[in-house]
């Protein structure tokens, strides 16, 4: 049988396909958010869904994140499986009580009587020239709270597989998409598949250094790994895919194998995801490490609007390459 060419989809298309498939599969799945219906979101991720599923299931809301996130929590508790759309991750600030004090706690505080099978989709990532209130990557905040799961896909394939798992999960899941990655193309098979949470993916195999990267930083890490190969450094790129649950075993094993690790994440470096992952590696692989685990995240500043300034606030292929090179003692 001739091998079928795997079709390529954009990241946005993969997200849309996951939603469409789940909405067809389960009539309880619905979408709330700003500009989610006819507009299909500013990033055109949801284009076409309102046409297929109608305004009852793809619901435009007022500009009131706290309100419609609360509505999502209530809907989930009473039988629906809503997918709430928060256009920019920066607006998570407005949803915090609903997420942290309600969605994350209800199952526990009701002794298991209530569930909150809600997905909150939102975005992260800088370099879109969107200024300080539309460019942050705040996934660390949610990863910090027991009761929430946090998924951060880095490819169209992972986006589709993880989103389907998120929708089927009975717990609240916060799903972060890199707004700069929506046009990224990648192979997505036609057939049904899901990706379990808490299973990291080796995006590239290597021997000399492990680069743990999340979401937007996975492509950066892969670019850096290619540059490193030219100077004789073989880098392994590991994508945890979910910050909680976290696949600690794979991270530690990779670091043990290569003896060196850099953790790259677009959130702020201070008290962030990089710190947590670096700590997991340091604890698990200490006696196999040849250098301190290095963290690379966004600078501790509001993300500037000025393009030249914005470009230096977050890790790039060049900075990751330089850090890895120095760590491997290659100049």
């Amino acid at each position: 049988m001739p091998e079928m060419a795997v079709r390529e989809l954009t990241f946005a298309h993969a997200v849309r396909e996951a939603l469409a498939e789940e909405m067809r599969r389960d009539s309880r799945v619905c979408i709330f958010g700003e500009d989610v219906a006819e507009a299909g979101t500013p990033f055109k991720v949801l284009s076409g869904l309102v046409e297929e599923f109608g305004r009852e299931r793809v619901l435009d809301t007022p500009i009131s994140e706290a309100g419609f996130t609360g509505m999502g929590v209530g809907a989930a508790m009473t039988g629906l499986r809503p997918v709430v759309d928060i256009m920019f991750g920066d607006f998570l600030t407005l949803t915090m009580d609903q997420l942290v004090n309600q969605a994350a706690k209800v199952h526990y505080m009701s002794g298991g009587t209530w569930k909150v099978p809600m997905v909150l989709r939102t975005t992260l990532g800088a370099t879109r020239r969107s200024a300080a209130q539309h460019s942050q990557s705040l996934h660390a905040w949610l990863s910090h709270v027991p009761g929430l799961k946090v998924a951060m896909p880095s490819t169209p394939y992972d986006a589709k597989g993880l989103l389907k798992t998120a929708i089927r999960d009975d717990n609240p899941v916060v799903f972060f998409e890199d707004k700069m990655m929506y046009k990224l193309k990648g192979p997505v098979p036609e057939q049904e598949y899901t990706i379990p949470f808490g299973v990291a993916d080796m995006k590239r195999e290597g021997e000399d250094i492990t680069i743990v990267a999340t979401s937007s930083m996975v492509q950066v890490a892969l670019g850096a790994a290619e540059c490193l190969e030219k100077i004789g450094v073989s880098a392994e790129v590991i994508d945890p895919r979910t910050t909680w649950p976290l696949d600690e075993k794979t991270l530690v094993e990779s670091a043990k194998k290569t003896s060196r690790a850099i953790v790259v994440d677009e959130g702020y470096g201070r008290y962030g995801v990089t710190g947590e992952i670096a700590s997991v590696i340091a604890e698990g692989a200490f006696y196999s490490l040849d250098a301190p685990v290095k963290r690379m995240g966004a600078m501790h500043v509001p993300i500037p609007f000025s393009p030249p300034l914005e470009d230096v606030t977050v890790p790039t292929e060049q900075t990751v390459f330089e850090a890895a090179r120095a760590m491997c003692g290659k100049g």
């Binding site: 003896s259 200490f286 006696y287 196999s288 490490l289 040849d290 250098a291």
Partner: peptide, 14 residues
């Protein structure tokens, strides 16, 4: 009280 220890990675020490 204090010994002069060279800087060494944990893996190298092991």
């Amino acid at each position: 009280v204090a010994r002069i220890a060279p800087q060494i990675s944990p893996k190298a020490r092991r």
